[in-house]
Design a protein around this nucleic acid. Structure first.
Length: 779
DNA sequence: AGCAAGATGCTTTTT
DNA sequence: GCATCTTGCT
């Protein structure tokens, strides 16, 4: 097809592989897109190209993982002049949309509720109670996770029961069955159902699949590396007849395996689609050469990947910094100072981002930034829709839209307080179960419940009456219904009465909900309350990340995917944090942690600061922190190292010179032994300028201390614990002499409780801690 | 019924 | 360290 003018515009600023991906017409296409390689550009241009070459916009279906990604894609495609009508959805929103049409096939009634993880957990607990499974034996959340994984793999409770070959699996299967039954009677689905049920309908109803294949002739899936089996099957079936599936993604950025994503979906794409065209986008337009080199070197350690050679035409740029601190608080302070300094140098606050592995690390960062007067925002946590007052309001609406929604009903039955206490609720629920009626019905016939006294019956009636009256608000516009519920329920009044701090905020929050409803009804004129509620269920805090808020942004590495910043601080490069300790066990996956680190590094455009602390507050307690293995893995020899050692905090066992503590682990042990403290210090600063990879910053030097203590830990024999009996005296590089109190092997690591003079008891990992045995008569 | 102190447990998380 | 749940008191 000859190119017309706009085609030329669509292709003009693309490189060759990008062009190939954009202009690929029919058949399977896999775009393996490295970070910063213009993936989003390729997807949007491809959509525009298809339309300009005659494919109706409404015949294209694009699937993303986040609402934010979907929105951005929609905007960018419209900006390219493509008419509306294209379907751009998240997998889950697509699920809702399809279940609205085919829900009856999945045994759902209209107005069904979507249960988030918190709701779902309540139902799991209820199911456990029914099945008589003690929460002490299996944690409800662990069961919830396992049910979730089963659903992602499209396993029904029956199949789980059949496959269960030991007691624990059978127990989970039993709870799963009861859980599914409870969801069914509540006319509710969880997040996983939105995928599983659609996948099953498509799998079992060839006619529907065929119709959808005719409706959508081109299917695009972004972040394909993060698809789970259900999503894989949905994508596969939706393109089964025409085969026009275009998957984009990067195996190196797969960071959700722990939640069911299967990296094999992308690694084995070519096996699933033998005629697939594979395009690799390897040119990076985002980062400097130095940043990209570190990232590439790190990720090459992974075995589970498609080889990919990232390159850039950009300058090498500034070397990557590696900062080491005595303590987490020093790290935070130094970073805040650096941001303040660099901001004077024509930088805006929104140029900076700070990434960490776990949310808990953000607190120290926040404090330091606050003290420095630096505006910041955190992309996490206390999201709008998770606030108590919002959830309460939504629970009322949920009960109105879906009277079977018992989780919501239980939430509001005594909120605000109306004298229906725990005892009354228990009796009502028992009676409801015995008479096989819904809780709502039982509420209205409370007098039939055994054990309920006059006053309790009256209150129950009154509440049932109230809900009945409220039912009429569903005939009004959504935002009006929200307002009416707020006043009729007494929630508004209760909030107004809250004189304590935050009462005003909570009132403002519920008003914000009314505003959100107004916005929604403007954009979706025909929508019902149930649809509004479904929409809200699928909104996440991830969607609220605003890269241009004029603030420094703080977020977890998971939240950082897909974003980019001129200057990035990646903090807490410590063994146990990144890689996280939960990935270091027997079943753990260090490769995913490495990918997480890779994702973090590749967010940086111009400057990258990596940092670690030797000691950090973990759950309020100071814990020694060994360096992350990733530091040496990514060190190309160009890193600029800096030790910010202070003695201001607590006395170290080692001698201190000029306010610095020698970092013994920075040098091979033989070297360290020869050096005087002063020379150690100088060698530290020498390394800080040795960017030529001359060998001074030997890649394993940092780990010399660790390697040595591992040797010592092994004690010449293969059994680690054997030589570390309680009572053994040891020497720790920083805490000095200590005595082993207990030893606990497990998960390839041996933990030991050691009491140090002046530092109290610490729990150390023998394989990692910078310790050595003290031989009798020595020292 | 309602509250407050105390115990427990938990810390990755697109939807 | 913090949030959530439990227990015990009024």
């Amino acid at each position: 097809m000859p190119l017309n003018n706009s085609n030329a515009a669509i292709l003009s600023d693309l490189n060759e592989p990008q062009k190939q991906a954009v202009t690929h017409r029919d058949g399977a296409l896999l775009v393996v897109a490295g970070p910063g390689s213009g993936k989003t550009r390729v997807i949007t241009r491809r959509a525009a190209y298809l339309v300009q070459t005659g494919v109706p916009a409404r015949s294209i279906l694009a699937i993303t993982f986040t609402n934010k990604a979907a929105e951005e894609m929609r905007h960018r495609i419209e900006a390219l002049g493509v008419s509306r009508g294209m379907w751009v959805y998240t997998f889950h929103a697509l699920g809702v949309r399809l279940l609205r049409e085919f829900g009856s096939l999945a045994h759902l009634q209209s107005g069904f509720s979507i249960y988030d993880e918190a709701d779902s957990l309540r139902v799991v607990k209820e199911a456990m109670q029914i099945e008589g499974v003690s929460e002490a034996v299996l944690k409800p959340d662990a069961i919830r996770t396992r049910i979730s994984h089963a659903k992602n793999r499209l396993l029904t409770p029956q199949e789980c029961t059949e496959q269960a070959d030991w007691f624990e699996q059978a127990t989970v299967a039993r709870v799963y069955e009861a859980y599914a039954q409870l969801l069914h009677t509540r006319n509710a689905v969880d997040f996983d159902d939105l995928l599983m049920r659609v996948a099953v309908v498509l799998r079992d109803h060839a006619d529907i699949t065929e119709r959808l294949n005719i409706r959508f002739r081109y299917v695009l899936i972004d972040e394909y590396q993060d698809t789970n089996h259900a999503q894989y099957l949905i994508a596969h079936l939706l393109s089964k007849h025409h085969g026009n599936i275009c998957a984009t993604g990067d195996p190196d950025q797969s960071i959700y395996a722990w939640r069911g994503a299967d990296i094999r979906n992308i690694l084995e794409f070519e096996r699933d689609y033998p005629n697939a065209v594979v395009v690799r986008l390897e040119q990076n337009y985002r980062s400097t050469g130095q940043i990209l080199r570190a990232a590439s070197q790190l990720i090459q350690r992974n075995r589970q990947r498609k080889n990919k050679k990232l390159w850039t035409a950009a300058d090498a740029g500034e070397p990557v910094r590696m900062w080491e601190f005595s303590e987490g608080s020093d790290e935070a302070k130094r970073i805040a100072d650096t941001i303040a300094e660099l901001r004077g140098d024509r930088r805006r606050y929104s140029d900076f981002a700070i990434f960490y592995r776990v949310n808990a690390v953000s607190r120290g960062m926040e404090e330091a930034l606050r003290n420095r007067g630096i505006p910041y925002k955190i992309a996490r946590g206390v999201e709008f829709y998770n606030r108590k007052e919002i959830r309460d309001t939504l629970a009322y609406l949920r009960v109105l839209a879906n009277p079977a929604d018992e989780v919501a009903l239980l939430r509001i039955i005594n909120t605000p307080a109306r004298g229906i206490g725990k005892t009354t609720v228990d009796r009502l629920r028992t009676h409801a179960n015995e008479t096989r009626k819904s809780l709502l019905e039982t509420l209205r016939a409370a007098e039939t419940a055994p054990g309920l006294r006059g006053a309790a019956v009256k209150r129950a009636h009154a509440f049932g009456e109230l809900l009945g009256q409220m039912q009429t608000v569903l005939d009004t516009p959504i935002s009006e219904a929200v307002s009416s519920v707020l006043s009729l329920s007494g929630l508004e009044e209760a909030l107004r009465k809250e004189r304590d701090v935050g009462g005003e905020d909570r009132l403002a929050n519920v008003e914000e909900l009314v505003t959100a409803a107004m916005r929604y009804e403007r954009e979706n004129e025909e929508a019902s309350m149930a649809e509004f509620l479904n929409h809200i269920s699928l909104v996440s805090d991830q969607d609220a990340v605003d890269e241009n808020a004029g603030c420094v942004l703080l977020m977890t590495l998971h939240a950082a995917k897909g974003l980019e910043f001129p200057i990035v601080f990646l903090v807490g490069l410590e063994q146990g944090l990144l890689p996280h300790e939960r990935s270091l066990g027997l079943s753990g996956d260090v490769e995913e942690e490495r990918r997480l680190c890779f994702v973090g590094i590749t967010r940086a455009r111009e400057r990258l600061y990596l940092s670690r602390a030797q000691e950090r507050l973990i759950r309020g307690r100071p814990m020694p922190r060994p360096a992350s293995q990733f530091i040496r893995e990514l060190d190309t020899g160009d890193l600029i190292w800096k030790n910010y050692q202070t003695t201001s905090t607590r006395g170290f066992a080692g001698s201190t010179i000029d306010g610095f503590v020698p970092l013994v682990e920075d040098l091979p042990p033989e070297e360290a032994a020869k050096l005087t403290p002063k020379r150690r210090l100088r060698s530290g600063s020498l390394r800080a300028t040795a960017g030529d990879g001359s060998g001074i910053g030997d890649e394993d030097a940092l780990f010399a201390g660790r390697a040595r203590s591992s040797e010592a830990a092994a004690g010449g024999s293969s059994s680690t614990g054997a030589n570390w009996k309680p009572g053994t005296l040891i020497q720790h590089d920083r805490y000095g002499v200590g005595q082993v109190l207990w030893v606990r092997p497990g998960g390839g690591q041996t933990r030991a409780g050691i009491r140090f003079a002046g530092h109290g008891e610490k729990t150390l990992i023998l394989e990692l801690a910078p310790i050595r045995r003290l031989e009798r008569g020595k020292q």
